[in-house]
């Protein structure tokens, strides 16, 4: 399973970003091998449609789950048509969010 989170800093110890499309980085976690890769958000400074580009990124990463504090209307419109499930993050760091999700402790946003 592939889980994606928007994050603030380029580190596994980062907390989850409070923005999705305009997060600094994305953390892409593969549960099969318990490994995560950090991607820089290249659409951060787009004038239009940063959320749309983020949704596109999630699809390219073949994500199954998105963990985020909130999601914009346009990204949501796209993701609702896909298999991606959207869960609400908690205030803890990335690893804790993933653990909580796997334990079923996170709430589904949509």
């Amino acid at each position: 399973m592939i889980i994606v989170l928007p994050i603030k800093e380029e580190s596994e110890k980062s907390i989850v970003s409070d923005q999705l499309g305009r997060a600094n980085y994305f953390y892409v976690y593969h549960s099969e091998n318990d490994e995560g890769v950090i991607f820089k958000n290249t659409f951060l400074n787009e004038n239009h449609g940063a959320g749309v580009k983020t949704a596109e990124f999630l699809l390219k990463q073949n994500a199954d789950v998105l963990i985020t504090p909130r999601i914009g209307e346009k990204a949501l419109e796209i993701l609702l048509e896909t298999k991606v499930k959207i869960f609400k993050s908690n205030a803890k760091i990335v690893k804790e969010n993933i653990k909580d999700y796997l334990n079923g402790d996170l709430e589904e946003l949509y």
């Binding site: 659409f43 787009e46 004038n47 239009h48 449609g49 940063a50 749309v52 580009k53 949704a55 596109e56 699809l59 390219k60 796209i78 896909t82």
Partner: peptide, 10 residues
Amino acid sequence: CRYNALIDFL
């Protein structure tokens, strides 16, 4: 598209 109104949707 400068407005990101088109996306590559699988």
